[in-house]
Amino acid sequence: MAVREIRLYGDPVLRQVCAPIENIDDGVRALIADLIDTVQLPGRAGVAANQIGVALRAFSYNIDGDIGYVINPVLTEVRGEKQPTGEGCLSVPGLWHDTLRHPWARVEGIDLDGEPVVLEGDGLLAQALQHETDHLDGMVYLGRLEGETRKLAMREVRESDWF
């Protein structure tokens, strides 16, 4: 349908806990199409619905050319000790900081036909699953940073030309 503009850190929609999708209708189908179109641009691993201004529980992903989406995703399992993982975010352009993430994750949800979807894996997929479900819970990755790293990141945000 359309590549949608990404909302930037500071936009209130990014702090909202996204509502579950109750009915799959033409509006939801259009949202999913827009999420898929938006995530296909180079350098994008995932886009949450609130990043395009819609506070509903859905995200798209683009991991190693595997493109898809999940409606009403829930992070159901993580494995392994959290490790510092280099992370950025489309809603926080130009910043890159180590974020503590589990090395393996599983998300469960549904597709447009109401059929179950299970995504699980390690590496970039595990990171994206955690990152995108955080978005749907109203958290940008900066909220996971601690101490001096968080102070540095917030200074970088304040000094950026987009904030």
Score class of each variant (00 low, 15 high):
Glu77Ile: 07
Arg4Trp: 01
Arg101Trp: 06
Glu148Phe: 06
Thr133Pro: 06
Glu146Arg: 06
Ala45Ser: 08
Arg155Ala: 14
Arg44Asp: 03
Gly43Asp: 14
Ser160Glu: 08
Val47Glu: 06
Gly68His: 12
Glu148Asn: 00
Ile52His: 01
Gly80Lys: 11
Ile6Arg: 04
Tyr61Gln: 02
Leu136Thr: 07
Leu124Asn: 07
Arg158Val: 15
Ile63Lys: 07
Asp111Thr: 11
Pro12Gly: 10
Thr38Val: 13
Arg57Ser: 04
Phe59Leu: 04
Ala105His: 02
Trp104Tyr: 14
Ala2Asp: 06
Tyr141Thr: 05
Gly10Met: 08
Glu87Thr: 03
Val3Asn: 08
Asp113Glu: 15
Cys18Lys: 02
Asp64Tyr: 11
Asp122Ala: 14
Leu35Pro: 07
Gln83Pro: 07
Gly138Thr: 12
Arg7Pro: 05
Val157Leu: 14
Gly86Gln: 11
Thr76Asn: 01
Val107Gly: 03
Arg101Gln: 13
Glu108Leu: 02
Thr99Arg: 08
Val17Arg: 05
Arg106His: 03
Glu22Leu: 03
Pro20Gln: 00
Val3Thr: 09
Glu132Asn: 02
Arg150Val: 13
Leu35Ala: 04
Asp66Val: 10
Ser160Lys: 04
His135Thr: 02
Glu77Val: 08
Gly94Arg: 05
Asp134Thr: 02
Glu77Leu: 12
Leu125Lys: 03
Ile110Ser: 09
Leu142Asn: 03
Arg29Gln: 14
Asn23Thr: 10
Lys82Leu: 15
Val17Trp: 00
Val47Tyr: 02
Val157Thr: 03
Val117Glu: 15
Gly46Phe: 04
Thr133Gln: 06
Ile6Ser: 07
Leu8Pro: 08
Leu136Val: 04
Thr38Phe: 07
Val39Pro: 01
Ser160Trp: 13
His97Pro: 01
Arg155Tyr: 06
Glu120Phe: 15
Asp26Ala: 13
Gly94Ser: 10
Ile36Pro: 01
Val54His: 01
Lys151Thr: 12
Val118Cys: 08
Glu5Asp: 14
Phe163Ser: 11
His131Ile: 05
Gly109Phe: 09
Pro42Lys: 13
Ile71Val: 13
Val117Asp: 13
Asp134Leu: 12
Met139Pro: 00
Gln127Arg: 14
Pro20Ala: 05
Gln40Ala: 10
Pro12Ile: 10
His97Val: 11
Glu120Tyr: 05
Asp11Phe: 13
Gly65Phe: 05
Gln16Phe: 03
Ile52Asn: 08
Asp111Pro: 07
Asp26Pro: 01
Glu120Gly: 09
Asp66Glu: 15
His97Leu: 09
Glu108Tyr: 01
Arg106Ser: 03
Ala33Ile: 12
Val117Ser: 12
Arg150Leu: 14
Glu148Val: 01
Ala45Phe: 07
Ile110Trp: 12
Leu142Phe: 10
Arg15Asp: 15
Asn50Gln: 10
